[in-house]
Simulated scan of single mutants.
Amino acid sequence: MALVTTTEMFRKAYDGGYAIGAFNVNNMEIVQAITEACKKENSPVILQVSRGARTYANHTYLMKLVEAAVKECPDIPIALHLDHGPDFETCKSCIDGGFTSVMIDASSKPFEENIAITKEIVDYAHKYGVVVEAELGTLAGIEDEVKVSAEESSYTRPEEVEEFVTRTGCDSLAIAIGTSHGAYKFKPGTNPQLRFDVLHECEKKLPGFPIVLHGASSVPQEYVQMINEYGGNMPGALGVPEDQLREAARSAVCKINIDSDIRLAMTGTVRKYLTENPADFDPRKYLKAGRDAIEAMVRHKIVDVLGSSGKAE
């Protein structure tokens, strides 16, 4: 099976009350772990690449890793997506370079400017059969190139979504309902609550249209504790409760982005391995341990959060 777009994935997810996991990839071990988990769970998947990942790993290397994953998992629908494309040039480079989906993030711009920028990408992408994700509302947090303070963040305004989608022609829409980027999404001691009222109002305005949640890692506390126990320093890291994400996946949310949880699983496991095996210096050993931890994390997300296990028909 060749790389696919998200169009059919999202249609099935919307109708079936589940979401597709969009997992950020940076290197071979992460690609292997995610796709192996999806193969074992028979789940479709979106492999997504940020501008920072392309800078780190090089576009060509990433494409070859994804091509290898497609070859090794011929029965699993795999889409390749640009996460948080900052401008036309970056999106065009990915479209021309083999991506099947791109996100243009002009959410920090005024409404009319966001529409104009998004439409320019849509017009170009659709000529080549590539789908486009856009964003309304601004998520707080820090992850890769995304740096938005709490003061700069804003919830999506449901009264704007229909006009935005109609005028831009985008294929899916990321909205802001209280998720945020990075591992420090909420203050310790708080009771995290997503704005389901905003989500459901957007859903009413856009019946049948796929919604996306960014910044949706849950920051598993066992890995935060592991990192801190083995030399790390992540006090107060807190994520989105998984039961709320599962509830979102039953609605119009067809794509849930997960990055920090993968980083935590790998980093915690590698720290623990190196501490317990101080004489080892073979990267294959500690990276294998990290890869296994990511695979287990992704399988858990597929089964218990996304609900996409067995959906790779």
Rank of each mutant, 00 (worst) to 15 (best):
A69H: 01
F88D: 10
P110E: 13
V122Q: 14
E151W: 02
D144M: 04
T90F: 10
M28R: 13
T55Q: 08
E113A: 10
D144I: 06
A33L: 07
A140R: 14
E120R: 06
R54Y: 02
T90N: 08
Y155H: 15
E143N: 00
S153D: 11
S50T: 09
V132M: 07
N26Q: 04
G97Q: 11
Q32T: 02
F99I: 12
M63E: 06
F88S: 05
D87T: 10
P44G: 02
A33V: 01
A125V: 15
I121F: 11
P74E: 15
K71L: 13
G85R: 04
G98D: 08
S107R: 11
G97T: 05
K39V: 15
A68T: 08
P44W: 00
E151D: 13
N58F: 14
E135A: 10
P158M: 14
D75Y: 09
N58G: 15
G98F: 07
A150E: 15
C38Y: 01
N26C: 12
S43Y: 00
L136E: 07
E112F: 04
S108R: 14
E133G: 05
A150S: 15
P158T: 13
S153R: 09
E135Q: 09
E41L: 15
E112I: 10
T35Q: 07
I78G: 07
C73K: 01
S107Q: 09
D83C: 11
I104H: 01
K147L: 14
V25F: 01
T138M: 15
A57T: 06
E133R: 02
F111V: 13
C38T: 06
T55M: 12
K71M: 08
K40H: 09
T60K: 13
I30D: 02
D83M: 12
K40I: 10
D83E: 12
I76R: 03
I95M: 06
E67T: 09
A106R: 05
P74M: 15
A125T: 08
E120P: 05
G141F: 10
F99A: 09
T118C: 05
S93A: 14
K147C: 14
E29P: 04
V122L: 09
Q48K: 01
L136N: 11
S101A: 13
F99G: 04
A69M: 07
L136I: 14
H81D: 14
N27Y: 01
K119N: 10
L136S: 00
F111A: 06
A140M: 13
I95N: 00
V70N: 02
P110Q: 11
F23E: 02
T118E: 04
V45K: 00
P44A: 07
D75V: 08
A106T: 07
L136V: 12
A68W: 09
T60Y: 10
K64P: 09
E151N: 04
A53S: 11
K109D: 05
